[in-house]
């Protein structure tokens, strides 16, 4: 199967749900016209990132009326976008939904919320506790939000559970201006390369652009292909929408050539953890 994915490298307005919903609809219509089957937006794309106490004002359940237009559009194109989810427990989560066929098919709550240095996510947001693995018409799909991507154990486990398409919405601020590429780009490149090369997954990494209170998000969204490497690479700092092609035959071919997944044995991990717990 071959399909087109749109990487929406956008600049959300912090705290302005109405503006952001409209921007998502415009972007999604554009992707649809271009023939995409799936569009992926950055982390917290519907709300903005540096919300602080605005978190309470913008949190919504995934099936809220404000997102009705997007749900309607998802009859024609699958949509992955970031928002502050109002959980059934009343807790705000840093989440991303996957909408398809007119309904919310899955919601992933970010599991690893950075709270150090410039990051203060756990101060305002609850922590997700479930790996995100679900079946879609694109194959078994997983979502990791920003920092989640840097946890190899999480990504490896998702691969072992059969994930072939990893969606990675992000809000990564630029830092490390000393080299030919940004320091953070090198770090992301390692994560993408590792997921595609060792685990045989397609990764759709979509990072936002723009500034929130001095934090500059660098963009650099990418499509990482197990055989082709980085096949789509968005520019730094520019708001753009790019299209990439996913050929799912690459997954089986790559995994046959380098059968890491076939070799994987989570029982070894389970045994090690249990031994340690019992010692």
């Amino acid at each position: 199967m071959t399909y087109t994915v749109a990487l929406a490298q956008v600049n959300p307005a912090c705290g302005d749900l109405e503006y952001n919903v409209k921007m998502h609809i415009d972007q999604t219509e554009r992707a649809l016209e271009a023939g995409a089957g799936l569009i992926v937006f950055p982390e917290l794309s519907l709300t903005g990132y540096t919300l602080k106490d605005q978190t309470l004002d913008v949190m919504r359940p995934a099936d809220c009326p404000e997102f009705a237009g997007l749900r309607e559009l998802s009859r024609h194109i699958a949509i992955c976008a970031g928002f502050v989810e109002e959980g059934e427990d009343g807790i705000p989560y840093n989440s991303a939904f996957f909408m398809d066929a007119g309904e919310v098919r899955h919601v992933h709550r970010k599991m690893y919320l950075p709270t150090h240095g410039m990051f203060e996510e756990l101060k305002f947001l609850g922590r997700g506790r479930e790996l995100s693995v679900f079946d879609t018409r694109f194959g078994r799909t997983g979502i990791v939000i920003c920092r989640d991507l840097f946890h190899p154990l999480e990504v490896s486990t998702m691969a072992a559970l059969g994930v072939e398409l990893l969606l990675a919405p992000s809000a990564m601020p630029a830092r490390g201006f000393g080299g030919e590429e940004l320091g953070i780009e090198q770090t992301v490149g390692l994560a993408l390369g590792s997921a595609s090369t060792f685990l045989g997954m397609f990764v759709v990494y979509v990072n936002r652009v723009g500034f929130d209170d001095g934090l500059g998000f660098y963009g650099g969204s990418a499509l990482s292909d197990p055989i082709g490497g980085i096949t789509v690479s968005a520019p730094r700092f520019e708001a753009v929408q790019l299209l990439g092609t996913v050929d799912t035959s690459h997954i089986a071919r790559h995994r046959y050539q380098l059968p890491i997944r076939r070799e994987e044995d989570l029982e070894i991990i389970r045994h090690a953890l249990e031994t340690r717990r019992n010692s």
Partner: peptide, 23 residues
């Protein structure tokens, strides 16, 4: 302490532009 000045120049211009316009 050396930086990639082309990156920094581009980044700072965008910062000035966006921080003003957002306000």
């Amino acid at each position: 302490l050396a930086l990639n000045n082309a990156f920094v120049e581009d980044y700072l211009k965008r910062f000035v532009q966006e921080e003003l316009h957002t306000s």
